[in-house]
Amino acid sequence: MKLNLKIWRQEGPKVKGKLVDYPLDGVDGDMSFLEMMDILNEKLINEGDIPVEFDHDCREGICGSCNMMINGEPHGPQKLTTTCQLHMRKFSDGDTITIEPWRAKAFPVIKDLIVDRSAFDRIQQAGGYISVNTSGNTQDANSIPIEKSKADEAFWSATCIGCGACVAACKNASAMLFTSAKISQFALLPQGELEATERVEAMVRQMDEEGFGNCSNTGACMVECPKGIKLENIARMNREYLKAEVVG
């Protein structure tokens, strides 16, 4: 299949970028999107051009690195998958594919399609943990009985891979789905109760300081999340925060 790629090229964080056209022939429908990008880069290298920089690591939908806005959608047109899980059979011969980096003040572009997502790390570091003695006497988590529905909900929330698609999809560049998932995975379990108040306060404060936008409940984040993280997490975060601020 022959494609016309329009890819965002930007030499560095302070340099102005632009969309550049790259015609690419010989793309197979069974290739993954990243394999298609690899072929493009090999072609560019062979032609003496600078390859397109993009993040990737596991290539099996776990690491959350392969962040690309493909034809105006985070991770492309296929729902519940990351870019590395997207196959070229989703596209047709002659298609024009526009590829851009995530756009948010809190996710500055480093180069081409790579953005700095360390804002997510700082939100996690602010409170996304529980205090457990891991010196060898760690209590087995299964020794505390937990209601099945709560365990399931906590697990669903914990499947967030922090890719940033929620921020990319949101018209306000809000990080509330990510932050709320990281709060929920602990808020639902007894192990998370000890630091519940400090956790939600610190993580929301950090989220605000990073410059993400406000949630206006469009639901775009949930639809585009490759792991299907639910919007109810945001409602839970709102409850947890109100409880923390009013009750303490």
């Binding site: 105006g72 959608e73 018209k171 306000n172 936008g213 406000n214 639901g219 775009a220």
Partner: peptide
């Protein structure tokens, strides 16, 4: 909120398919 949200994305996408994931109404309150 509108002003703050615009500041959160100072550089807009060249192509943004909002209809694929949300309603027009929710995006244009």
């Amino acid at each position: 909120l509108e002003i703050r949200n615009n500041k959160a994305r100072p550089i807009k996408y060249k192509r943004f398919d909002g209809n694929s994931n949300s309603t027009w109404v929710s995006r244009n309150m």
